[in-house]
Nucleic acid binder design. Structure first.
Length: 806
DNA sequence: AGCACGCCGACT
DNA sequence: GTCGGCGTGCTC
């Protein structure tokens, strides 16, 4: 048998399988989906076995040098999916495969040097001899950092003369957590006898021993020590006496260790919820694939529908994946799933350590759980009997990966749904125009929940024109309505959520005299002011400088920072409502692990009157005592140079206002804006998604944007501006010659951020309706420039259906 | 990617 | 004459 291997070398020429001989000792374990180490040219690399074959067109095959997995890490379905991903997103096959696995499984390369066995040490250069006098093995990467040029040259020479040998280790970063456990080492009779003859000494040992025999088969040593309030030496003494047996076992980390979750029962469904369930479950029963778009207003009980639908899937002995945007993967959300399904759920999100993620992933692969809840990449959960995929907050842009492979989780979900013949449910109060348009066309099945659970009214929305406020003399960032509203809540013992929309509103520094804005010297973008460090940072390249005292351009001293951070709002809030207890949630206050949860819990307990925050408080939060939501600057992102800006504004405002009055108490929303007539703000006031959809579709049609047309953006970058311009030009020309009406190639133009990290960036945008050969043209472009891309600084990135047009 | 091979100039 | 510069091509 021959193994067909995709090696871990991301390069165009290598993007295919290579054949390797399977040595007899590996015959049992080598199968599609396992990771191996293989010799590749002069070095050793990691690879994925993707298939086996009887023959090879090569006659001199090298043998596989190592096998990392006993169980495959990728199922045959995922291997196939990897191929599809690499084709549709134009990435390397390895990159696609890697993206489906937890980071812990990515290859770790280590190069070490050691002296060859039979050498005369006297022939070594003195420096090298000294290096090896202290240690037998020297790590290459450390040497590279510390050693001087001469030493490195000497070493190179010694390597050539075979005096020093290079050892390459290809390993896996994955670490299994090991724990010490003890168990009974003698029979119950022997124990009885022992205890009878115990005597008056070593009381602690006796206690520990009794505990083990009474309460457990096997117990983790640290647990035992904690329970019996003793030290490990006591346990050790018992082990030494032969009464307990100690061993080391591998343990899967549990991120929820030490936390207990209550059990919740399915709630009675409303008739709307019931109808939705019936439609979805019909497909679960029939084992057919369809994609459902579930539009349910905020508070209509979508989560309960998900939970019960999953329940039905589990009953059928199948598995379910639930995707939730990272930002709303809140403890509240996780808890709801844990409470219903207990230890049958694996949770995958960015807050976990690499090891924890790996263990959650293993629970899925080892079929210990049947439900996976997680952010974007959880769509690759290695289930084999997938019965349903749910994507909550379907419209969220975070479902699109902005690095290679540039996939959209929705597309992957549908691909998996087709493979497993199971339904995919896209849920949102404000679906993306793309999805809603597809539902209208009948590509997706439309499902609707228009009423809130228990017939609670939608919150009433007041729009405040901030220009009016200013004219009437209110120069603060809070309108009178909002201040009054907050005061009333405090009096009534109710709570307020204050939302600050910071996108497109970052805090930049500008000179009031000449209008000069401080920019990054490498990136053509305004620097962002960070109060905590007192610095101006570029969030593209990390460049940092101190805030200047005078304008670098005109030397005026009237240089100030603009824009509003949450800290600034908090201060202002202290001025107008000194009695209010404010809980601030932003990147700064939630950096520490668990801080997010702590703050929310505090607010939930009523330890704060006002919860002030950015995007992270927009979704999924459900606090019964919140009756007022204030949106401080509703229109800040409305005028971003992005055709989706209006859609995003509508979605965000609707999401945020949905935090108010979710239970018995009536909710109110105050929206502060400088553009009250804008249709996205007008229509969100009446919670009128359908009208918004129709209105926005007109705009998209006029501009020939999605969902009317598809987009692909090609970005070319290099340190030399001339090369960038020329290359982009040629690419645009190439495409113009090949594409058919009504496709258009826009540009080339400089990218919205024309320079990042001293690399110039040009782009061209392709708009098309039907262009079946586009992917192959794009592939041609990459092939045309592959040599130049490996040999020079040139890079070309292609993003099909982009979300960030930067 | 990363490394060897190989063909030209500066030097012990 | 050799050492080392980087352009070219290959990796089962």
């Amino acid at each position: 048998m021959i193994a067909n291997v995709i090696v871990d070398v991301p390069a165009q020429q290598i993007d295919r399988t290579f054949d390797y001989e399977i040595p007899p000792r590996f015959e049992q374990v080598v199968q599609p989906g396992v990771r191996v180490a293989v010799p590749f040219g002069p070095r050793k690399v990691q690879g994925f076995v993707v298939s086996l074959s009887e023959t090879s067109q090569f006659d001199r095959l090298k043998p596989i040098s190592d096998v990392f997995d006993i169980k495959p890490v990728l199922t045959s379905e995922l291997l196939e999916l990897g191929d599809w991903l690499s084709v549709t997103t134009l990435c390397f096959k390895v990159t696609a495969l890697q993206a489906m696995l937890p980071a812990a499984l990515r290859a770790k390369y280590e190069k070490t040097l050691s002296l060859s066995d039979s050498i005369d040490k006297e022939t070594l250069s003195p420096e090298v001899r000294q290096l090896f006098s202290r240690q037998n093995v020297v790590r290459w990467d450390e040497l590279q950092k510390s050693a001087h040029e001469q030493l490195l040259k000497d070493i190179q020479r010694h390597i050539k003369n075979h005096q020093i040998v290079v050892n390459e280790h290809v390993g896996s970063k994955a670490t299994m957590k090991k724990v010490r456990v003890v168990e009974k080492a003698v029979s119950d009779e022997t124990l009885k006898e022992t205890l009878e003859n115990w005597g008056n000494t070593a009381k602690k040992q006796r206690e520990v021993l009794e505990y083990v025999f009474h309460y457990s088969e096997v117990i983790v040593v640290s647990e035992l020590v904690r329970i019996c309030e003793t030290s490990s030496s006591v346990v050790k003494a018992l082990v030494d006496k032969g009464l307990l047996h100690e061993k080391v076992v591998e343990q899967k980390r549990d991120p929820f260790e030490g936390r207990s979750f209550g059990q919740t029962e399915p709630m009675a469904l409303t008739s709307e919820q019931q109808q939705v369930m019936t439609s979805i479950l019909r497909d679960v029963q029939k084992e057919t694939h369809r994609t459902f778009l579930l539009r349910g207003v905020t508070g209509s009980g979508k989560t309960e529908v998900y939970l019960q639908a999953i329940e039905a899937v589990l009953q059928k002995g199948k598995e379910a994946i639930v995707l939730v945007p990272e930002i709303s993967l809140t403890p509240q959300m996780v808890t709801r799933f844990k409470e219903r399904f207990g230890s049958d759920v694996a949770v995958l999100h960015s807050g976990l350590s690499q090891g924890e993620k790996f263990d959650e992933w293993r629970k899925i692969r080892d079929q210990e759980v049947n439900v996976a809840v997680g952010a974007r990449s959880a769509i690759f959960a290695p289930f084999t009997r997938l019965g349903m995929v749910i994507i909550d907050e379907e419209h969220e842009t975070s479902y699109k990966q902005e690095e290679m492979p540039r996939y959209h989780a929705r597309d992957v979900a549908i691909a998996r749904g087709k493979y497993h013949k199971c339904p995919v449910v896209l849920g949102s109060a404000t679906p993306s125009l793309e999805s809603y348009a597809r539902a209208q066309k009948g590509v997706y099945e439309s499902l609707e929940m228009a009423e809130r659970v228990n017939n609670i009214a939608m919150p009433s929305v007041h729009i405040v024109d901030m220009r009016e406020e200013l004219r009437s003399g209110n120069r603060s960032m809070f309108s009178n309505d909002l201040i009054e509203g907050m005061k009333t809540r405090i009096e009534r013992g109710e709570q307020t959520v204050l939302f600050l929309n910071r996108r497109g509103y970052s805090t930049f520094v500008m000179c009031r005299d000449c209008g000069h804005v401080v920019q990054c010297p490498h990136c053509d973008i305004s620097l962002t002011y960070h109060r905590s460090t007192g610095s101006l940072d570029c969030h593209y390249c990390g460049y940092r400088e101190r805030v200047p005292n005078t304008c670098p351009s005109c030397e005026s001293e009237a240089i100030r920072f603009f824009g509003s951070g949450t800290q600034k709002v908090e201060e202002a809030l202290n001025d107008v409502l000194p009695e209010a207890r404010v809980i601030r949630m932003d990147v700064d206050t939630t950096k520490r692990k668990g801080a997010h949860e702590k703050l929310l819990n505090a607010f939930g307990r009523g330890d704060g009157d006002i919860l002030l925050g950015t995007q992270m408080i927009a979704k999924g939060l459900d606090f019964p005592n919140v009756t007022l939501v204030g949106i401080l600057a509703a229109d800040t992102m409305l005028h971003l140079p992005d055709f989706r800006a209006t859609e995003r504004t509508f979605q965000l405002l609707t999401q945020v206002s949905g935090r108010a009055g979710r239970h018995e108490k009536e909710g109110e929303v105050v929206v502060q804006t400088y553009d009250p007539e804008h249709y996205s703000i007008q229509l969100m006031q009446n919670h009128d998604f359908v009208s918004f959809f129709q209105r926005e579709m007109l705009t998209r049609k006029r501009g020939q944007y999605p969902p009317y047309m598809f987009l692909t953006v090609i970005t070319v970058s290099d340190t030399e501006l001339m090369k960038v311009a020329q290359t982009t030009d040629r690419i645009a020309q190439f495409l113009k010659e090949r594409l058919q009406e009504p496709s258009v190639v826009l540009g080339p133009v400089a990218s919205p951020i024309p320079r990042i990290n001293d690399r110039y960036r040009h782009q061209c945008v392709i708009k098309y309706k039907h262009e079946p050969k586009l992917t192959s043209f794009l592939q041609d472009i990459l092939s045309m420039y592959q040599t130049e891309m490996t040999r020079t600084d040139l890079t070309i990135t292609i993003d099909q259906n982009p979300y960030m047009m930067m």
